[in-house]
Design a protein around this nucleic acid. Structure first.
Lengths: 197, 197, 197, 197
DNA sequence: GATGAATGAGCATTCATTCAT
DNA sequence: AATGAATGAATGCTCATTCAT
């Protein structure tokens, strides 16, 4: 954690994280300079170090915070589902909604994995695997109960995740489709895909 | 020594592009230094400039060459298809195969778009749009003929493309699945998804 | 160590300008490297950029500062002169004295004009034209009042300026002549030249 | 000398010197790159070295050739002059004419002295001193015969040389004045200056 | 004579980071 | 907390020069 206990700069801290997220999303971690970041927040470079430990830590905190809130939110969305089909519907709706709403976090969580130092990388990838496993489990349950039919559950899951995650690349809230339309269409496509002909 | 015996223009050019592709794929364009690249090829930094104009040009040439060969290969794969379902099968098989075989090119073509200068960006994105349009056209034809049923053709196309493209992130040729298995499963999923219940 | 004890912004700024002036005077702008400059001031190269924006800016600031102080000093020297002959005497004395005293600034202001980027060039040349115009005006007044006789006033002015400015190339304060001797002789030559036979 | 005996490339040799003169005049020796020069002549950089030994040699040959032809031409112009006043008239006419006609050579001969390596510097400065001495001798003779009156002959000579040399900076053949007008005016000014009131 | 490919040193500039104030 | 000045390493790129072909 970067925040010094007891310090009273939550505003600056937050401003740095927001600007950092935006800049990493736009230019990438390697291409973002701390001078740029300081400029966005209205500080001199040196002052940044009252709020972050290193550039790498800023990235890690962003990704780690994102993954934790993503997992918490998913568990909430899936709570008390017995039926795999119902669970899959909820998963699709949750994933698309979350990926539309917080596209920057989601995007850098995929694109900046390689910018993480080994230890940090392992942690984030571990959390991500947990997320994937929840979808795999749903599919495996569906297959076990005979309501889904797929060749290989993890492969099906990776395909579905890639398809749904793609929305954070192209979806525009002010475009032809509403988020609800999108969720409806993708839910139908995903269910058709796993239920078979 | 001013020249390694046996060195040869076109060979060096190719070596630079190969190493460049590999390094950009691994570390990203911004994080790859020309010193690293020169080292991989066995040259001094300055010598690189006998073969490339700028770092940006190296990236652009890589992406441009890739997009052109991708489009040519797709047109060949789709030649003489009358039936949308047949066309879609061929598209899936082609796309997955190509994205497994040349995963580095494909990956950087998505991930390094933002590293392109505006003019170069416009060119590559234009070519990519051409690729997407071919899939959209197939889906629209299928819908027109009543064999496919999707909410919105472009949205379906983006979903399918994202799903298929994902393979270049996780597929390992020495893994549990063969490329043929993968193509079979994904063809089935895609066709189910667009044919509806 | 991150900072030499006792170092201080404005002082360093001044040291950089002094050393920059000396080095540009000796080797020329293009031939002076910022490494050299940093070495003279006792800094690492990068630290220079806490005090200058670019190498070009350093040059421009030097020339601009010089031209402004030159014009101010000239106006002071010429204040309350009614008689053209008196004005010309004062001009010669002022110009020679200034060009002996601050020969480095004066020299680079002539020799490094071509190293200025277009916008900066225009500004400095504009100021210089203002200086020339003051001498031209004196000669024209003298001609109008019949005390001077020259073919073309600007041409006479350019000749006089070139003659006087030359001192910063060869005059040595510890040489055969004192500055006062020099001013006397040049005043006589200039007055003879413009008064005619 | 740069030219390999027996080679038959006088055209290329000449083209390189012409372009070199022009580029050094425009940008300065340090700022001119051999790549630029090669480009102007229509060669690759490496090929330049079939015609020059080094960049420094190119500069030296330019200056040395210039000084030798200047001295030869001056001696011709002054041949068979008995009278100092006549000699001074001829000197002014010769110097102005030469400095207008070959302004680029003349200019770089002043401005690029500092770019010469020590040995080359000594040679060129020696030749230049010879040129100055001819004017000093004329003035001293005039003073000895009582037709000129100046404080210090070398100082007068330096002033006159600076004044006359200045023309290569500002004179435009298509301007308000012809070369003849200029020579007339400057001859008058110089003679007035040295003859005294 | 010309070319293209190489070298190794050098360039101006930017970087993440540190720390006295 | 914030600043401004510093560090030392690194960046993309250019340089004069060499030389096998």
């Amino acid at each position: 954690m970067t925040r010094t206990a007891g310090s009273h700069g939550p505003t600056t801290q937050k401003a740095i994280q927001d600007a950092g997220l935006r800049l990493i999303h736009h230019h990438g971690y390697a291409a973002m300079s701390l001078r740029q970041l300081a400029g966005e927040v209205g500080l001199q470079v040196g002052s940044l170090y009252n709020h972050i430990r290193t550039k790498q830590d800023l990235l890690f905190d962003l990704l780690h915070g994102h993954m934790e809130s993503l997992l918490t939110a998913l568990d909430q969305a899936l709570a008390e589902t017995a039926d795999p089909e119902d669970a899959l519907r909820r998963f699709v709706a949750f994933h698309v909604d979350y990926h539309i709403t917080r596209k920057a976090e989601v995007f850098i969580c995929y694109s900046e994995l390689r910018s993480l130092e080994p230890d940090n990388y392992a942690i984030i990838v571990g959390l991500r695997r947990g997320y994937e496993r929840r979808l795999i489990a749903i599919i495996e349950q569906g297959v076990a109960r005979g309501c889904f039919r797929v060749g290989d559950a993890p492969v099906a899951a990776y395909g579905i995740l890639a398809m749904l995650t793609g929305v954070c690349t192209w979806f525009r809230p002010d475009g032809r489709l509403t988020a609800a339309d999108l969720i409806d269409q993708y839910t139908a496509m995903v269910l058709n895909a796993v239920k078979g002909p």
